[in-house]
Nucleic acid binder design. Sequence first.
DNA 1: TTGTAAGCGTTATCAA
DNA 2: TTGATAACGCTTACAA
Lengths: 341, 341
Amino acid sequence: MADAQKPTINDVARLSGVSKKTVSRVINKSPLLNQATREKVESVIADLGYVPNLQARALALRRNFLIGLIHDNPNAQMVLGVQEGILDTIRSTEFALVVRPVDRHSPTLFDDIRRFIEQQRLYGVMLLPPLSERDDLAQLCRDLGCTVVRMGSARLDDDAHLVASNDRQAVSDAVAWLAELGHSRIGFVAGPEGFRSARERELGFHDGLARAGLKPDPAIMTRGTYRFESGRAAGEQLLSAPTPPTAVFSSNDEMAAGVLHAARERGLDVPEDLSIIGFDDTATAAHIWPPLTTVRWPIRAMARTAAAKLIHPSSAASEPSIFLSDLVRRASAITYPPESR
Amino acid sequence: MADAQKPTINDVARLSGVSKKTVSRVINKSPLLNQATREKVESVIADLGYVPNLQARALALRRNFLIGLIHDNPNAQMVLGVQEGILDTIRSTEFALVVRPVDRHSPTLFDDIRRFIEQQRLYGVMLLPPLSERDDLAQLCRDLGCTVVRMGSARLDDDAHLVASNDRQAVSDAVAWLAELGHSRIGFVAGPEGFRSARERELGFHDGLARAGLKPDPAIMTRGTYRFESGRAAGEQLLSAPTPPTAVFSSNDEMAAGVLHAARERGLDVPEDLSIIGFDDTATAAHIWPPLTTVRWPIRAMARTAAAKLIHPSSAASEPSIFLSDLVRRASAITYPPESR
DNA sequence: TTGTAAGCGTTATCAA
DNA sequence: TTGATAACGCTTACAA
């Protein structure tokens, strides 16, 4: 049953009494076609359940219909959000989404990517952070004849090749809000060095303090790896400062959860004794106790736009590339001093 | 720079002074080839940086090199784990992984999947739960001439078309362990009706009680939707029973986190007043407080095997299909009554 | 062990 | 507005 040879363009041509070129014109919606002819061919196509062979088209057109997603798993929800966003855009087209997780520490990273693009002859590629921050990787893809759109947290490239959130602004706003709540000792957990997102968030932190007229205090600022354990260590460090912070901004949710654990282990209550804000709005953020106030960025919408820039470079390339994030206010950050005490 | 026409098999043939068929033989590692010829051709291939055109191969071979992953986002970490597992297997081959998230409640689900498979002419498809539990979908893929491997939590199909965890056994073990810890009032939060995984876990729960010589008590058993909020509601319900449970098994982590919130809102301490066990070992499980004891299934390994069954049906089809899960013991489940009280 | 001719299913060229 | 013919880059007969 599965092997009832799929009908080809020849079958359609024969059955509708036209040449295959005419059928091809119908498929490609050529404008110069007799309406009657078109309708006849279309009805045969429907009858037969004919679906054009994409591989053959790709061969003849000397171009492919594959979009590649290359990433080194920044976090599961983000990768999945991106996939959904890309699909939103390409679902009604002939394009397909091919994924390739890679290891950015692998010595063969370059070759892996080259091989992937060459072998599959990708039409376009989307790069996720932190890979997207590397100009050499973007250049590699271009040299391979493949359009690239990079997703990041700052202006990594020109509008045609970029979708980015404005992390600096978002963090600045979050910190300013903590200050409005009455906090004047605000701790900071930075992300790992070498990550552009980490740097942007760090800049945003300083911006926020400045807006509130506060001075940064190195005693309550530290750095983590974006992983849970590092957040816990960072929390311990900050909370054992001579004058500990009353609020902490963590550069991502996973570390924020770590800070929360550290506080708990010292017998502190969150948010009564310590307010915490994270970044990313991962699933965890809403499911920990107390629910985490955090910065959410519109990943899916960004990916939708990114895909549009890839497949309609002419019309979509100039669409806005910078997306605004917003602060999701949950229970982990409250006024200082707490009202109910 | 990008448009330096890629070399073709003809270029290789010309430069190495052989026919294209011979080059083809080299590419396909045909055994009957003069060693010297092979080496010469290989060196030309290397010089040229020639990469065979997969689309052309696909056309000539009348088969494709695309594996599809169809899912309705059971949870982000699982989907990503599956993608990584599949890539582990296909990385060194010519296959690529094409993903297609779908909406299982969409009226066009059937057509969406058909269109995807027909259009991309997939070689094989992997189905994730809960979609994988539907025989009609698996049959659809087969009718379209595409091998299918289903991932599930029970024997949904024969070995050649299945990778499954043994949820029933895993839950039974978890519940038996709670009993060993001294709990005799063990509550249960079931997953949504219609989910095979939910049923298996439910059966496992009863098995576990039976093994411990305990009777199920409907007053401390309820059902959720696998979502956080439903877990919270379930927790409230169980904890307001005339004689509330001292431990709860939740059919997934997300609901377990909800039960935890419910307990907290009633002023209960976890695990001192209530032990909780979840299922899935999502990222959240390790990051909530207290860290959640949960069942972990070897998703990536399962996906690796699934991919092998797809691309090497002859050798891998008979590999074992049932994978064992294990209990990850963290702080959320302790003895009853608690020792330190 | 190697080569020739034909074909896979589509589109481009150029006439009609 | 349509159609014959030659690509596209590769593989499978079938010879040599």
